[in-house]
Design a protein around this nucleic acid. Sequence first.
RNA 1: GGCCUCAUCGUCUAGUGGUUAGGACAUAUCCUUCUCAAGGAUGGAACCGGAGUUCGAUUCUCCGUGGGGCUACCA
Length: 506
Amino acid sequence: MIRTRFAPSPTGFLHIGGLKTALFAYLFAKKSDGKFILRIEDTDQNRYVEGGMEQIIWSLKWAGINYDEGPDVGGEYKPYIQSERREIYQKYINELLDKGFAYRCFCTNERLEEMRRKQEENKMPPKYDKHCLSLSKEEIDQKVANGEKYVIRMKAPDNEWIKFNDLIKGKIEFNTKELDDQVLIKSDGLPTYHFAVVVDDHLMNISHVIRADEWVSSTPKHILLYKYFDWKEPEYAHVPPILAPGGKKKLSKREGSVSVNEFVNLGYLPEGMINYLVLLGWNPGTTEEIFTMEELIEKFDLSKCQKAGAVFDIKRLEWVNGQHIRKMDTMIFRTKLMDYIIQDINKRANNESFIKFAIIEQERINKLSEYKQDFNIIYNFDESYDGELILNEKMGADKVSAELAFNESIKLIESIDFEKLNSEVIKTDNSKLIELKKSYEEFIKNKFLDLVKNLNMKNGQILWPVRYALTGTDKSPTIFELVWILGKEESVRRLNIGIKKIEVLG
RNA sequence: GGCCUCAUCGUCUAGUGGUUAGGACAUAUCCUUCUCAAGGAUGGAACCGGAGUUCGAUUCUCCGUGGGGCUACCA
């Protein structure tokens, strides 16, 4: 049974680099019908952030990465929060102490700092000098009895090669002489990452440790621990980081958005986010690029993962997200848009009108937050625009053509049976809404084009002034869409405003 | 500094001991057009450098260079 885990520290919002790592571990497990586990690594009391765990859980759920076991869902290997596993680590550190693979160290911070300072002076690598390794049993017992604080360190062998085969990076080897006598248990009695991760991964039966790239260097320590315990080592796969644009620095807060919830606020969809992230380091071996989570589970493969870090490119994210918006079911999109803009919904955006709005936006925007401009045009119309802009030399639209355009358009719009049109929108099945929209767009379009033709004018002479009067701006959906959604009364009202504006122009 | 590791268009990447080095985003141009998007078409754009192996290296080896990681009683 394949079992992978995501083991974040609850130090705040989930970073998209963390999401990427979680995703890779999730996809790998699910591909082989394995289990994916969430474990919270909160052994550092100093970095504890209130609500950090909830943030992580929320973000994973938003992304659609569902874990089979975890702090809030339980599981047969519980608890899944390391601070609740104190006694377990205590038991296993005693085993190491008994076997002689670990020892107590009573060195003070001052001594350690002094030691490192000297090492640096002499251009020596900073490593613990094993000062406390030579303590006799009596000395140790005496110090413990005196209540002296101590940590427990692992004993690193002198000159042994530790080799492992990383599923992404390939063969990696280290010599143990480079290894420090790593602290396993801190003076507060809690384990360090290195100890807790090995004990928990073993106890939780993790078969594949898929984690961030930064852990490569400490993997030999972990492997050593497995050897000391005589446990079976897991397979390892280290996922490359996401880098900030420009320089080859790791993506960080200074470079813009990094936390999952920021992307949620910007209106990216989980489908788009996941799809973009998986492409940052993995490819299917074909030219396909847009995938659902189900497809990813089927196709994902660690052997097709990139070894190097990938630069974050928001433009590409936007494109991927836009692709998902466009292929989404109209009703699902509408619901998502509605949820996103709930604070903006006003009484003008009634049900039938909002259905139309969502259909129009689905083919125009790349992320939910882009709804705003069109929304304001339609529901928060600003009458105070500059009337001069109705006229447009380039379009051939002058005062005469604009006046003609407005008067004729009003007649045209009044001839349309909007009641029938609107009732059909409500009645129509979601899957056919886009078709319906296209047919009405076509219908209204033909009326306007006929008008232009009959007046013997150019499109721009008539259509530019009308679109401008309808929107008060130079960027908007097409006139046909606007008339469709605004309806008779509002369209005519806006055209009349336009008439007043050009009347006063010289 | 030491150790580990990585390196193909601006970006994400495919690929091979001999290819016109492929795709996507971005960019440019064009089409569509009432504007902005969206959509369609086309173009420009890359094998980090130096040795070696070889008939031939982007590909294999070594050495540089550059990037990243680790070097904590943080994870």
